[in-house]
Amino acid sequence: MVLLGTPNPESSRLVALTLTEGDPTWAGPLAGVRLELPVFHITEESIKAQVPPEVYEAQVGLAEAVLDTRAIRETLEDVRARAGAGAKEETA
């Protein structure tokens, strides 16, 4: 799986799409390449819950405090939903 630390929904979408459906800008070597890797953001609750809280706070806390974590989560849920069975099953 892929774990992202991207700072906004747009960059999250760009990287996530590149690693699932292929580079949406058709600029790089992954244009048209369907890797279908499941992609999650470090601030998504299902990921965060698995990290020791004090470590999460030290490594991610400050960024999480200012990022639009809800929009990032919704963006990645959308990408995963589009990505097909391989990635989708894992999101449950």
């Binding site: 960024a63 405090a65 990022l67």
Partner: peptide, 18 residues
């Protein structure tokens, strides 16, 4: 899609102050 980099950095500094 790269966001407002200065604003993000200033918000982190302010969150640190908070």
């Amino acid at each position: 899609g790269s966001g407002d980099v200065p604003r993000l950095n200033y918000r982190m500094l302010a969150a640190l102050a908070a």
